[in-house]
Design a protein around this nucleic acid. Structure first.
Lengths: 137, 137
DNA sequence: GGAATATAGTTACCTAGGTAACTAATTAAA
DNA sequence: TTTAATTAGTTACCTAGGTAACTATATTCC
């Protein structure tokens, strides 16, 4: 098995997709990392920063930065939790208003990069990735 | 098809593997980006920086940084080409001496993260990734 | 209850990799 | 042949995400 090639193509794919998404989000004034947080918040509801980190498997410091940018743009609010160490992150009305446009853009971008990959391949790929990830964690 | 999950798991896998490799290379005083350049140079022979960029699908500025670090560590030499804009990058004897140890470390790290993924899955994954990449480029 | 430990979040700083703007050399066009 | 356009590489600066060290709050244990 050519492990070098496996890792190299995975890495390339990841970079290429990240760049494509960032390119698409640029005119909307969002970065990919911001979108991923927004998406989780919209899907799961308000979460603490810790919960956001756990869900996205990202360390706390980058999440702090992402949140702070979103706060500055007015898309997110930090509310102190019952446990005063925690900050609960909520989407603002401004974000909810913009959300459909963001989602549409991301959805269309995802579709466009997956266009030439048959549905069955996509599902097989997802299955393999999930299986691998599971073994690694 | 759940495209969000497909991209999310791909991104996670890529980060996890990058971190694992960097962890393994740390005691050897190398970073993952340095290793990938060294590996290409060892495999393909001396190349210009442009050729290295093309092969690794990385932009010129990060490659400049990676090369400059390798020069500073004495693992690589920059030789002016016939075309005086170009710099041809060569591995030094010092790098060739260390290479087997580096390769062994990387190989063992790769094996360890692939351990629980059946060979057939690895090959299927590689096939799918290559197919997808090809469509995207 | 008070000291030690654990946890949430922040700050500072590191690598990876991207774009924009630049220099110097080469190639194409006038 | 001289000017314009292209190309290789660098510099400056941006986001993404990592670790280490820190602060403030909660929890455990004596």
């Amino acid at each position: 098995m050519n492990t070098h090639e496996l890792f190299h193509t995975l890495h390339q794919l990841s970079r290429l997709l990240t760049n494509t998404l960032n390119e698409a989000l640029k005119p909307l004034g969002l970065y990919g990392s911001q979108w991923s947080a927004i998406f989780v918040l919209k899907t799961k509801g308000s979460l603490t920063q810790k919960e956001l980190c756990d869900y996205l498997f990202v360390e706390a410091p980058p999440m702090t930065r992402t949140i702070q940018r979103l706060v500055k743009q007015g898309y997110v609010r930090q509310v102190p939790g019952k446990d005063k160490r925690e900050k609960i992150i909520q989407l603002t009305d401004k974000a909810l208003l913009e959300y459909p446009k963001w989602e549409k853009t991301v959805f269309e971008t995802n579709e466009s990069v997956l266009m030439d990959l048959p549905e069955t391949s996509q599902e097989e790929l997802l299955r393999l990735q999930k299986s691998w990830l599971q073994h690694l964690k």
